[in-house]
């Protein structure tokens, strides 16, 4: 057997037969290797590797949904129940604590949530918005807030309500003082425990 037959050689080799194994690209191997690399690279880039950063946000969506739903359920202007938002806030003053409203919130919300309840209002005498806190728990830095706007008539508020429009503001926009609309934003701040 001639020695030259045992030495693999490439069709790309140049020069005389002495340097047949000089390290040229062996065509078939080269083509296969190239195709293999391209196929693997194609598979890798075509598959959408979704590392979900949204999994944390999804929990917040559910917590905010609890807050929004709880405020919607408790807002019932036609009812005379003591734990509706309208009735509880109308009776708010510095000495009255809305226990029925807070008990209902505790019933509705799941056990792994804590909350703070506060009301944002417009103080017509100082011409500034203020925040009236109903509960005052210390909250962690990441909280979720749900809000609901309710409108009460000035006449529905008790006389020492923090939101009451004083008597000397009469006939604003041709509305009598007791009919004057008082717009309040109820804020429910929720966090997981």
């Amino acid at each position: 057997m001639w020695e030259g037959d045992l030495v693999p050689s490439s069709s790309l080799s140049c020069g005389n037969s002495r340097s047949k194994d000089r390290g040229q690209a062996f065509t078939l191997e080269g083509v296969i290797a190239g195709v293999l690399i391209l196929v693997v690279a194609y598979f890798l880039f075509q598959s959408t590797l979704i590392v979900s950063p949204l999994s944390g946000d999804i929990v917040d969506v559910q917590i905010r949904q609890y807050g929004l739903d709880a405020l919607n359920i408790l807002s019932n202007p036609q009812s005379d129940a003591n734990d509706t938002l309208e009735n509880s806030i109308a009776k708010l003053n510095s000495s009255v604590y809305p226990t029925e409203l807070l008990n209902s919130l505790d019933t509705i919300l799941p056990d792994n949530l804590e909350y703070n309840l506060e009301i944002a209002y417009f103080n017509i005498t100082t011409n500034q918005t203020g925040i009236y806190p109903i509960t005052n728990k210390s909250n962690p830095p990441d909280t979720v807030t749900a809000t609901k706007i309710i409108v009460l008539r000035n006449g529905q508020l008790v006389s020492d309500s923090p939101f009451k429009v004083p008597v000397n503001y009469t006939d604003i926009e041709s509305v009598s003082n007791s009919e004057f609309p008082v717009v309040l934003e109820v804020r429910l701040i929720l966090w997981r425990i």
Partner: peptide, 9 residues
């Protein structure tokens, strides 16, 4: 349901 806010929830 349970009675909250004047309704059964």
């Amino acid at each position: 349901g349970e009675y909250v806010g004047g309704r059964l929830g």
